[in-house]
C-alpha cells in the first residue's frame, strides 16, 4: 500500500513540476505572436465566419495589414478593437460576455453542470420494480450459472 502511494505521489509531483516549468517558461508575447493572435480574433466581413488570418479576401488582407501597422505604431489591443469595430461592426469572432450574447458563454456551462449533477444522481440510484420477464429470466439464468458476466 505504501509503495503504491509513493509511486503515485511521485507521478503526481513530476506532473505538477513539469506543468510549472511549462507555465513559467512561456516568456513574454513577441510582437509577431501578438499580431498573429489579433489576426485570429477578427472575422473577415465577407467570409462567413472565417478569421482575417484564415481568409485571402482583399478586405481580410486589408484588416491584417491594419492590425500589423497599428501594432507597429504601439496601439493597445483595446484601441485596435475599437478602430476595427468602428469600420467593420460585428467582426469580433469572440462574442461579448454581456447582454444576450452572454448566453452563448453561460448556457454550455449551465447545461454541463446540470448534466453532471444528473450523472452524479444516476450513479448509485437503483431503479426497482420495472424488470421485464426477459430481464428476470436473464437474472435467473445467471444466478443458476453462478457467474457475474464476462
Amino acid at each position: 500500500m505504501t509503495g503504491r502511494l509513493v509511486r503515485w505521489v511521485a507521478v503526481l509531483a513530476a506532473s505538477i513540476g513539469l506543468l510549472v516549468v511549462a507555465a513559467v517558461d512561456t516568456g513574454a508575447e513577441t510582437e509577431g505572436e501578438r499580431v498573429q493572435r489579433l489576426h485570429d480574433s477578427y472575422a473577415c466581413p465577407v467570409c462567413d465566419g472565417q478569421s482575417v488570418a484564415d481568409s485571402n479576401a482583399s478586405v481580410a488582407v486589408a484588416i491584417r495589414n491594419f492590425i500589423s501597422d497599428e501594432v507597429a505604431a504601439g496601439a493597445s489591443d483595446d484601441q485596435i478593437r475599437d478602430d476595427i469595430l468602428r469600420s467593420w461592426p460585428g467582426s469580433l469572432l469572440n462574442p461579448p460576455g454581456e447582454g444576450f450574447a452572454a448566453l452563448v458563454w453561460v448556457l454550455p456551462v449551465l447545461v454541463t453542470v446540470v448534466g453532471a449533477t444528473g450523472v452524479a444522481f444516476a450513479v448509485g440510484r437503483r431503479v426497482e420494480g420495472s424488470a421485464t420477464s426477459a430481464d428476470e429470466q436473464l437474472v435467473a439464468a445467471a444466478r443458476d450459472s453462478g457467474g457475474s458476466g464476462a
Binding site: D40, S41, A43, G49, Q50, S51, D54, P89, G90, S91, L92, L93, N94, P95, F100, A101, L103, V104, L107, P108
Partner: peptide, 23 residues
C-alpha cells in the same frame, strides 16, 4: 449553440454576431 447563436441573436434584437474559432 455556437453555430445557430448568430441566428438567435438576430432574431432576438437584430444584432449581427459572428462566432468563430476563438469561441
Amino acid at each position: 449553440l455556437g453555430t445557430v447563436f448568430p441566428l438567435l441573436a438576430e432574431l432576438w434584437d437584430g444584432s449581427r454576431l459572428t462566432i468563430g474559432s476563438p469561441y
